[in-house]
Design a protein around this nucleic acid. Structure first.
Lengths: 345, 345
DNA sequence: TCGGTTTCTGTAACCGTTAACAGAAATCCC
DNA sequence: GGGATTTCTGTTAACGGTTACAGAAACCGA
């Protein structure tokens, strides 16, 4: 039924299949205007749509981007995918979605083969860099042969990367606490096998060192991104060092865990203890007190990644070289109540 | 390079393409065990993968499911997609992801044609039912010709639907407030052109009517799912009817908005005012006070939808009929602090 | 030994496009 | 008017699988 093919169109329009194909291709081909119109109306009346399968069989392209993602149940990753989809549809690409369940150990080879078998034009690799889960990039036996853009990964000279500048963000967050008058600033990090967590920690370190504030071993506790780990983290921090009067929690969920513990331990936030999180997750303003945080625009990260990928694919098609780029987007500080140390005003 | 085709395998194994294809198909074909092994090792040594494009060109299948979604930046929809992906990969399907930006008015015809052109085996329609955005189902000129499972949509006799029983959930939430001793129970609904919002409201209504509690016009205010609208909603409710001592907010975001306003207006939650939300969004327990809510397992909804779809596709392939089904999953009440009216204990 | 099954394998056509090549038509210039 | 260009269009062979059909091989009983 829906099986109207290019041959049907050709017959109706009284031309050859090749001509129809050329009209479809568009690209400034030699086509008399009159025949073009005939073909176009034939297409219109038949409701013809070219078969993508046939097309990509012949041309080795699918006008499809593969997305390898992780953690769709969390806010950041979801936004990333949303951004990717937005830009992809803008550019006329479809999206093939793959979610890995264990980001530390995913079967890259299998995945790449699947992608190749589907002729995806390019890949968005949106799995956070954890441990050595990106080590396959150095493995010479693995040849993706597909343009890939990596998200939230450590910049690498020969690869395309789009990421948030987590170091700067950590710096900014901590400097803000310092500016609020905090003297003893603790850190609840994410798991330190995450590249992003390490960068944020380095930012915290750099900020403290630059103003010569104390930075003891016990000022750092490692969480696992969950609110529960944030609770545990702050409790640990405050029992080890009761003098702590400011905390940078490396994501909002741990931050709200900390908020709860502060309440339970009778520390007023922000008067006794300033807290800032990271992510600006939805409704962060509605915790009590309203959570200060570093906003990272993951939608934009997704969008930019697809833009880059689009360029690479184009370049590859036309044979022009396209040198790898690294895009670092800055996070933006959102000051709400939880970090207003001196409750000025 | 990666262009090892079925012909290569055939040559190496010393058989014909047809034989290789048959080995690949598996299905209890007549193949001598010895030749099967020869083919298998040839495949192995060459690292051969069948081209999906060629395959679906011939067989009119793509082993791909289309997912039409909305609102990936929110918790529920994200979980749904995650569930869909999980089950799909379990069943050996790939996922083609489409996100609509205006759920009320999406170009269904265009979308369906795109899906057909890609030979998707089936469709997961995860766009909430708003206004008449599902009316195309009654339009005889639109013939999807693809099996579709609808999520979070009103049950329809001739279609496959998987949804949360929002009516029951509304009933449960409200009955819980009644059980806590609330006498005047207000409602902050979602936009009433959403089917889900209407169902929850009906549940609230039914609960109140069954115990003959007052239910005035002014007890209902319509929000738009945002926290801000929850703020506005509760403010409105309390100024109109100061006697209100319990509120069912139809999602958690509006609920936390209400939490904030209650604080600002000096109403203690839950002592003066019990509040229950809907969704059990991440870290709902970390608001202040910890938010009671109705948990809907959207991951499961996604999973079940794919299971259903898989069955339909199988049935369709083998020609056996597959009568439409409607799956209603129940939400689960999660009682935390915000609704413990009498702070018993 | 031979015909009749059953089991196995090869041949060839087809799926719906694209693109290299060549041939036809139109245009131009002398 | 005729040859050289330029513009347009058709013929045909892929692309990499699947599958109907037929033929070969093996097995069986008479």
């Amino acid at each position: 039924m829906s099986a109207t093919t290019i041959a049907d169109v050709a017959r109706i329009a009284g031309v050859s299949k090749a001509t129809v194909s050329r009209v479809l291709a568009g690209q400034s081909q030699y086509i008399r205007e009159e025949t073009r119109q005939r073909v176009l109306t034939a297409i219109e009346t038949l409701g013809y749509r070219p078969s993508q399968a046939a097309r990509s069989l012949k041309s080795k392209r699918s006008y499809t981007l593969g997305v390898v993602g992780y953690g769709l149940e969390y806010y950041g990753p979801s936004c990333t995918i949303a951004g990717v989809e937005e830009e992809a549809s803008e550019l006329g690409y479809n999206l093939l979605l793959y979610l890995v369940r264990q980001p530390e150990t995913n079967n890259v080879v299998e995945l790449l083969e699947e992608m190749r078998a589907r002729y995806v034009d390019g890949l968005i690799w949106a799995v956070p860099e954890i441990g050595d889960n990106h080590a396959w990039l150095e493995d010479p036996t693995i040849q993706p042969n597909i343009p890939i853009v990596f998200l939230s990964a450590e910049p690498r000279p020969h690869h395309f990367v789009v990421a948030i500048n987590n170091f700067n963000a950590g710096l900014t967050a901590t400097r803000h606490l310092i500016a609020q008058g905090c003297q003893h600033i603790g850190l609840i990090t994410g798991p330190l096998d995450w590249w992003e967590a390490r960068q944020r920690k380095l930012g915290w370190k750099a900020a403290l060192d630059s103003v010569e504030l104390p930075r003891k071993e016990g000022y750092v506790v490692e969480g696992n991104w969950s609110a529960t780990s944030g609770e545990y983290g702050l409790r640990e921090l405050l029992t080890r060092h009761p003098e702590i009067d400011g905390v940078f929690a490396c994501n909002d969920r741990m931050a709200v865990g900390a908020l709860k513990v502060a309440r339970e331990m009778g520390r007023r936030v922000p008067e006794d203890l300033a807290i800032i999180g990271f992510d600006d997750m939805q409704d962060a303003a509605y915790f009590y007190p309203a959570l200060s945080t570093m906003r990272q625009d993951m939608v934009e990260v997704g969008r930019r990644a697809v833009q880059e990928l689009g360029k690479v694919i184009e370049a590859q098609q036309s044979g022009t070289p396209c040198p790898p780029t690294t895009l670092m987007l800055e996070a933006e500080i959102i000051v709400r109540e939880s970090s207003l140390f001196h409750k000025s005003e």
